[in-house]
Each structure stands twice: as C-alpha cells, then as structure tokens.
C-alpha cells in the first residue's frame, strides 16, 4: 500500500513542481536541464521505492504512475475544461509582428527565443514577418508567418 501512496504523492509533487516551474523551464532541453531532470528523478526514486527493491514493488510503482497518467488523460477527455488545469492554455505572444512584452515577461520568453523559433521553423528573419507566435501548452513556440513574408525555409507553421 505504501508504494502506491508514495508513487501517487511523488506524481502529485512532480506535477505541482513542473506547473510552478512554468512551461518554459524544461521545454528547451539544454544539457544542464537534462542533468537536472536526471537528478530530480534520482531523488524521487528512493522515496518511491524505499528499501524495497523487489520486482513486485517496482511493478506497483510503475503501475501507479502509468495508471495516474492514463487517468488524467481520461479525465481531460471526459471534462475538457479541466485540461487547462493540467497543462495550461496556449498564449499568443506576438500578433501582427508586434510582441506582447508584458505577456512574454510573465511567461519568461524573450524576443531571442521567438526569433529562434521563427528561424528554426518557417525560416523567418525578423519579428515583423511573424503573423502570430503562440506559446503552446508544452512550452514550445509556434510561428505563423505573414502570408507575404519572404522566407528562406518555407516549411509553414512549426514549433520548437
């Protein structure tokens, strides 16, 4: 029983922590972020497993984590309005080439990140070529180019 409770508590702790950290925190995985994630999972592992390294306990912990994950997706399908509490909502950060600086500040996105997304995706060079930039639920930035903008890589809307 304690394995299930511990795994559920760790899941909840992770969910709250990642929501608090904001969607941009781990969306662009740098080398350091990757190591940070490994440290976090390592520290959570002992709490979930305790001193019981049996196959049964491992199975229980995995079953609990996957079970909760599936349940949350089912809940989101059944009650779509709750989805925003799990993953947040998209946010328009640039419209018609003009950045919403207050939104970007609050979401911790800078102009350089938007321009990087614009280069990586549709191959845009300047802010005024962007019709919309949207900060997605997963922390990536989607770029929708203006129709008349000249592009070096016209692959359409994309997200990094």
């Amino acid at each position: 029983m304690s394995s299930v409770i511990h795994a559920a508590a760790v899941y909840l702790l992770f969910w709250v922590s990642l929501r608090i950290a904001g969607r941009r925190t781990l969306s662009q995985m740098t080398n350091f972020d990757l190591i940070l994630l490994l440290f976090i999972s390592e520290s959570a592992q002992t709490s979930m497993m305790g001193s019981d390294n049996s196959l049964t306990n491992t199975m229980l912990v995995i079953a609990t984590l996957i079970g909760i994950n599936v349940s949350t997706s089912l809940i989101q399908r059944r009650w779509p309005a709750l989805g925003r509490y799990f993953d947040g909502l998209p946010l328009v950060i640039v419209a018609d080439g003009r950045p919403f600086f207050d939104r970007m500040t609050m979401a911790r996105v800078d102009e350089a990140a938007v321009l990087a997304a614009a280069r990586n995706g549709p191959g845009l060079e300047r802010m005024d070529q962007i019709r919309y930039a949207v900060l997605e639920r997963n922390g990536g930035i989607s770029i929708i180019p203006k129709e008349n903008s000249e592009r070096s890589n016209p692959s359409g809307p994309s997200s990094i």
Binding site: L89, V92, D96, R131, Y132, V134
Partner: peptide, 13 residues
Amino acid sequence: DPRPTEQPPDFGQ
C-alpha cells in the same frame, strides 16, 4: 493588445 487587421484567432487562449 495591438490589433491585427482582421479578427485574430485566439488559439484557445
């Protein structure tokens, strides 16, 4: 909010 020339999509925000 700078207003684009036409009614902007809200993308679910």
